[in-house]
């Protein structure tokens, strides 16, 4: 009799129905499509290419992002913010990564509430992120962290100006997570571009996507995106440093290798300045070096294994 208590709990739980919890809520879906529409309208392909030709920060767009709540998203409503949490921020940054939106988005988002005007998109904030690099120093109104001896370098990414700075203390895990979300978005775009090209480009009388060598590159692209997505969303829910470290490693891999494979699927076109593929790869490279790169995340997880925590 007592032995069946467990079984009853099982059925009771089963009857609850609609037990869908680790999925986007309707509000989260709406937020995501709102951001996606805004970015498609304000930073579509033409705007992206225009930005490549005329580097610099679009202040009007920055203010629009501010109005849309991009920076104030996690500030409490009492402080004039939107009052949402990390999962919503992650969805927003994923869209930013998908659109390859340029600018010190993470730094300004984190400065909202501390630096006047950051939340509204009036002040552009750049920050040394603990690693050895500083993005967007010249365009920023406020630069946080040790940037006195910043040395400019000729950035590999046409849309991210870079300075070398002294590496500092341990990076902010939220910055790492939001970067992972951007990487996830870029990886998703790489997968979409690769699949679209594989469907339309014809060789030997058929779409190249019918060849297994190409097909399997696309399948691996998607698998990396889906695994990274689960890791990034989970880290947004738990905000656990080890989950964030895992999310970062998988998202970096999905974005960097995804862009590489996308390039391969594009053939000679992939090696051109004109195709967008290189922009994906270069941004992914820049983000993968944020906060000093992935090695520290791997070490953190290794330490975690030893301590037996998180299991």
């Amino acid at each position: 009799m007592t032995g069946h208590v467990g079984g009853r709990a099982v059925r009771a739980a089963g009857e609850r129905g609609g037990d869908v919890r680790f999925q986007l809520t309707d509000d989260q879906r709406a937020l995501r499509s709102g951001v996606r529409e805004l970015l498609a309208r304000r930073f579509g392909r033409e705007a992206l290419r225009a930005a490549v030709e005329r580097p610099g920060l679009d202040r009007a767009l920055w203010r629009e992002l501010g109005t849309a709540g991009f920076f104030a998203l996690r500030l409490p409503e009492t402080a004039g913010g939107v009052g949402l949490g990390l999962p919503e921020a992650v969805l927003m940054f994923e869209e930013a990564g998908r659109a390859l939106l340029p600018g010190p988005l993470v730094a300004t988002h984190l400065a909202a509430g501390n630096v006047p005007g950051a939340a509204e998109g009036e002040t552009v904030v750049a920050a040394a992120d603990g690693g050895g690099l500083l993005e967007w120093r010249a365009a920023a109104d406020v630069v946080l962290g040790d940037a006195v001896d910043a040395v400019p370098l000729r950035s590999v990414d046409p849309l991210t100006p870079l300075h070398r700075v002294p590496a500092s203390d341990t990076p902010d895990p939220v910055a790492v997570l939001l970067t992972a979300a951007e990487q996830l978005g870029t990886a998703t775009r790489a997968c979409e571009l690769a699949v679209q090209h594989a469907r339309t480009r014809q060789q030997f009388g058929q779409p190249i996507g019918a060849f297994q060598a190409v097909k399997h590159l696309c399948a691996e692209l998607l698998a990396r995106v889906e695994v990274a997505r689960a890791a990034v969303y989970a880290a947004a829910v738990t905000a656990d440093p080890a989950d964030i470290a895992a999310a970062r490693l998988l998202a970096d891999d999905a974005a960097v290798r995804g862009a590489r494979d996308c390039l391969q699927v594009h053939g000679g076109m992939g090696f051109t300045w004109e195709a967008d593929v290189h922009l994906l790869l270069k941004r992914a490279w820049v983000r993968a070096r944020r906060a000093g790169g992935g090695a520290e995340s791997e070490e953190l997880l290794a330490r975690e294994l030893l301590s037996g925590a998180g299991r």
């Binding site: 680790f22 889906e226 890791a231 989970a234 895992a246 998988l250 995340s297 791997e298 290794a302 975690e304």
Partner: peptide, 18 residues
Amino acid sequence: RLGLLDAEFRALWRLTQW
């Protein structure tokens, strides 16, 4: 290598939950 594997299995568990 161990840390990266931990990331992978954590993510696979999250994918399962998803």
